[in-house]
Design a protein around this nucleic acid. Structure first.
Lengths: 164, 164
DNA sequence: AGATCACTGTACAACCTGCCCAGTGGAAAA
DNA sequence: TTTTCCACTGGGCAGGTTGTACAGTGATCT
């Protein structure tokens, strides 16, 4: 027999097969295309086409290596909410980007705030990072919280599992 | 000639070659071992050994697929800081983990707070997610900010580039 | 009905992987 | 100093995988 797919292609970006494929790759990212096709019970060409399509659509942006920062010596993760001077978000963002330990910055609603995730090797080190942030021109106020634990590590799984 | 490495193996977890390898894989994650060895100018076995070692040490935990949630239809990212009832962190964490749109939860210093990252398809959808969070038993107060932009997307690069 | 599209199943050459081994030289231990 | 240890090199081999192509099938769209 042949097809069975596309019975469902409303305006959904991902169909069931896409989701199953992504879940499979989430669990075992080093799987080859052929192995995926075996696990999913479809032809190799189909898996290949799906992957290409996901990449083309911008849904699948790559397979970056996942690094454990703690194992790399950066045992501390901290978050900072900062208030900045009006109209200097661009400038402040660039200043933050120049700090190695700053791993992520978001501009958020609220009082024109920035939200920062950073890492450090130790409390001392964290202090230095915070000092660096405070020294960025335009930063007015900063409040820091240290991550004590991570009950829910970064995940996308539930969103995929819900499909189909 | 042979070796040239291990001139530097103090207590560093990663040496220069490790870092270069990880950077290479960060940029082009689908590269095979052989291609990596060519780009780095070392023998294939060396790359293989380094990768194995990084995995063994827990530094390299895998190559999960990177998904663009926006391209998947989840155009909104929001953060929430929540205050919870004393001694119910475990319980609240589990409640949060059960919500699909909750992508990350950290317990932080401060007043026994949790920090949540979530996504949603639309403002309406976000409202539902927030409602779900508020309904988790033990949650006392919640303040939400929507991410307007992401001046510094999640990154590890600077930490690697600094090595050697 | 005809065109279009996604999927299947097959095929083939080129390539890569996992694995093994001998040899070399630097660094640490004896 | 000599020996041992260790990381890296460079080579080889079998088996599996990739990239690519193509014909065939059935469902959907026009």
């Amino acid at each position: 027999m042949a097809s069975d797919g596309q019975a469902e292609h409303s305006d959904q970006v991902l169909d069931g097969l896409d989701a199953r494929l992504l879940l499979l790759l989430t669990d075992e990212p080093r799987l080859g295309v052929l192995e995926c096709s075996r696990r999913l019970g479809v032809a190799r060409g189909t898996v290949q086409a799906r992957l290409d399509r996901l990449v083309a659509r911008g849904v699948l942006t790559g397979f970056p290596p996942a690094l454990d920062l703690a194992a790399m010596g950066y045992g501390l993760t901290a978050f900072a909410v900062l208030e900045i001077a009006q109209g200097r978000r661009q400038e402040v963002s660039e200043g933050l980007a120049a700090i190695n330990e700053v791993c992520e910055v978001h501009a958020t609603t609220g009082q024109g705030d920035l939200f920062v995730r950073m890492v450090a090797r130790s409390n001392d080190d964290l202090q230095h990072v915070i000092d660096e942030i405070v020294d960025v021109p335009g930063v007015q106020r900063l409040s820091t919280s240290i991550a004590l634990s991570t009950p829910v590590p970064p995940r996308v799984r539930p969103l995929l599992e819900r499909i189909r």
